[in-house]
Amino acid sequence: MFTVFTLLNMVARQVIWDLPGLVDAATDDFVLGSIWLTLYASFLATLIAVVFGTPLAYVLARHDFKGKSLVEAVIDLPVIIPHSVAGIALYTLLMSRSPVGGVFAGIGLVFEDHLPGIVAAMFFVSASLYINAARDGFHSVDYRLERVARTLGASQSRAFTRVTLPLAVRHLLSGAIMSWARGISEFGAVVMIAFYPMIAPILIYYRFTTTGLRGSQPIAVMLIVICLTVFLSLRVISRRWERG
């Protein structure tokens, strides 16, 4: 209730008191570019989480091994450390002057104030949401279904793609949506490593500190409306998929 009221209040204030400001923001290429960059960067971060996180989640769901608790704790770490701290940690690791960042810079992959830096920061804070959801999804599929599939002639990979994945896909999709949403909302970690190019949360903060509510609120309203529309659509698609 509190969440809904807070957001509705902001949207209503903007529409009632300053509709022209909203229209201006909606036609400002810089604002639109910033929102697009936010959605795109978070999509890339989620994609990386899906590619690398899915096998990890499967292993965590299906196997017990020494150090498993440690791995799970590390996955959850970004949730508990302040994101500005995460941003500084990422910056010191990936800046071009660091050994690791230097290697990447050598192959043309620069993180500071570039898209890869935004993606890295978003990945850092959001991957755990996807990995945990995927792990729970795989865990919810009875391992004996895979075993039966194996006896019926399926290789391990085919048992996974034909049996486990279709049954866990709802969890994976839900985790990916949450991960994407978390990436979009990230400010603290991104601002440390890539103030520019400006993602929407940074642009909103920048406008707030330079032009006050009048300059920042329209962008915030646009971001909220776009995000809600996208997420609700994805939720509906996910539900329909689930019902088959």
Binding site: D142, R144, R147, V148, A149, R150, T151, L152
Partner: peptide, 16 residues
Amino acid sequence: PEERGVGFVYQDYSLF
């Protein structure tokens, strides 16, 4: 397992 020529039926059926 897929090379052993066995059919397996579990107690709880384990249907897909």
